[in-house]
Design a protein around this nucleic acid. Structure first.
Length: 508
RNA sequence: GCCGCGUUGGUCAAGGGGUUAAGACGCCUCCCUUUCACGGAGGAAUCACGGGUUCGAAUCCCGUACGUGGUACCA
């Protein structure tokens, strides 16, 4: 590659950041870093009616959480700004006017009502959604059908108008997509897309081309939903800047939900997140859950996303960001959409909980436990506890159950779990056990176990029949690591206290 | 409807003319553990369909079906 690699993620700040969006960011980022290039975030806020306050900040918060920081953006700065299209409004019109001069575009004065009427009038069984294309445009009110004088008149009078591209007739437009290979379209089947809207803002089509050129983008990754409008972009590049400077396109496969395209509805319906972080729409207070708050580690989140539509060709599935950068290549991106599997997603998280350094894990788990009511005064003790239980957790909130009882005495017990084996000599055992525990000088799990085993031998009760009741008394249920480890970390007094507190409830 | 893109177990996928068609998630059985996990050993389950081309097709070609995206002064 001759030029420095420059890629961009271009979201419109209209709501939460979707799984697919984050994956697009990730592939951009991986490719840029792999080739020593720049990753740019450009905000595509050309639709003022869809502007949502806070959405832009939210996007940057998500990128930060994922550790996918841009090199250039409205908040990170850069030499190709401004990075918000709304702030670039004045840039686009001259290019559109140039297209008109050269006969590649035209003014159109049709009102929204007239367009709607056209769609009704022209609709037939063979043409369910009529487009403003080469067959229709000669029936409409535009600078192609109006005299030059009339057009000038309308323009001077400030008549509302748009600028549309004039799609050529029967021309095959083809290009090589980095993911799909050769793709071609018949130009007469593509409509005359609006380039500049009546409010003077460019549409996406105009803005991507001009901005990608001005920002010297070399590779353009975007979702496959854009593939159908690629011919418009190709033509614009050809007319405006020449095909030689056009970025290489890579249309990424879609991420699908349990049935069809993945939507935030699916998340609500099936109980998994689809946004990177929690998002509340300020317009209607509609809340959508995020992976972060659901208890995913960012390392796991980007890892699982990377594997949805790409793989390294090896059997490796767990990748750190650095490993992904190293292994990434566009030619191993799949052509077909991938269905998102929440079970597998949680497996990735489980793997990452085990993989990241325990100190780092502890830092993220601590506030969770505190929020659940645990008072944590000794970080070293917490670290040991996290180490002890982390194999049992696949989502961060699992730590509340698996580590909470080290701080909070159980308030209810799974009596049913022990009742079947709860014979009359058991209470006797535990009362004596408490007395014996009290005599232990050096409180460690070997001592505790020894005392336990000795007494069970003495009373002729199988230790196995005693362990489960002990566990339930200490933690409240059938879970957690080895019982004697638990007793050790709870401490002598607390262990005895918990047994004595639970005993009457089991007797009843 | 029209146009584009796609189709390997339930899901993610390797493989791209000759393979017993990898591996992972999930599921099932067993071992370990008298908790739950982790770990270990097994198991069930796949090339959408129909035609070609070829000695030979999951792999190449053509149809069909299905899925998916687009068909806005939204991105």
């Amino acid at each position: 590659m001759l030029n420095k690699v420059r890629v961009r993620f271009a979201p419109s700040p209209t709501g939460g950041l979707h799984l697919g969006g984050v994956r697009t960011v990730l592939y951009n980022y991986l490719f840029a870093k792999k080739h020593g290039g720049d990753f740019i975030v450009r905000i595509e806020d050309t639709d003022q009616s869809r502007f949502v306050p806070g959405a832009e900040q939210y996007i940057f918060d998500c990128l930060k959480w994922c550790n996918l920081e841009p090199d250039e953006s409205p908040v990170h700065g850069g030499n190709y700004g401004p990075y918000r299209q709304s702030e670039r409004k004045a840039i686009y019109l001259p290019y559109a006017e140039k297209l008109i001069e050269e006969g590649f575009a035209y003014y159109a004065f049709d009102t929204p009502e007239e367009l709607e009427q056209m769609r009704i009038d022209e609709k037939t069984a063979e043409n369910l959604s009529p487009q403003y294309d080469n067959s229709i445009r000669r029936k409409m009110k535009n600078s192609l059908t109006l005299s030059a004088e009339k057009t000038r008149q309308l323009l001077n009078a400030g008549t509302a108008h748009v600028i549309r591209i004039k799609m050529p007739e029967h021309e095959t437009i083809s290009f090589t997509d980095l993911v799909h290979g050769e793709v071609s379209f018949d130009s007469s089947l593509v409509d005359d897309k609006v380039l500049i809207k009546a409010d003077g803002m460019p549409t996406y089509h105009m803005a991507v081309v001009v901005d990608d050129y001005l920002m010297q983008i070399t590779h353009a990754f975007r979702g496959e939903e854009w593939l159908s409008s690629a011919p418009v972009h190709i033509l614009l590049w050809k007319y405006l800047f020449g095909l030689n400077s056009m970025p290489q396109w890579a249309h990424l496969p879609l991420i699908l939900g349990p049935n069809g395209k993945l939507s935030k509805r699916d998340g609500a319906k099936f109980g998994f997140p689809v946004y990177a972080m929690n998002w509340t729409d300020p317009r209607n207070n509609e809340f959508t859950e995020g992976f972060k708050e659901k208890g995913f580690l960012p390392e796991a989140f980007i890892n699982l996303l990377a594997m949805l539509g790409w793989n390294s060709g090896s059997e490796q599935e767990i990748f750190s960001l650095e490993e992904m950068i190293d292994a990434f290549s566009i030619d191993r991106i799949h052509k077909s959409g991938a269905r998102f599997d929440y079970e597998k997603a949680t497996w990735f998280n489980q793997e990452w909980i085990r993989k990241i350094p325990v100190a780092q894990l502890t830092t993220t788990v601590k506030p969770l436990l505190e929020a659940a009511g645990c008072t944590i005064t000794d970080d070293n003790r917490l670290t040991s506890i996290v180490q002890l239980v982390k194999d049992r957790c696949s989502l961060l909130p699992d730590f509340e159950k698996q580590a909470g009882y080290f701080y909070l005495s159980p308030v209810k017990w799974e009596r049913e779990a022990v009742l079947p084996k709860w014979t009359s000599e058991k209470p006797e055992f535990f009362e004596q056990f408490c007395k014996n525990l009290a005599t232990i000088g050096n409180w460690n799990f070997i001592e505790i176990e020894t005392v336990f085993k000795n007494l069970s031998t003495e009373m002729n009760i199988k230790p196995g029949e005693l362990q489960l009741p002990l566990r339930v008394m200490l933690v409240g249920g059938k879970y957690g690591p080895a019982v004697f480890d638990i007793a050790y970390w709870i401490g002598k007094e607390e262990t005895i206290a918990r047994i004595q507190k639970a005993l009457p409830i089991f007797k009843a």
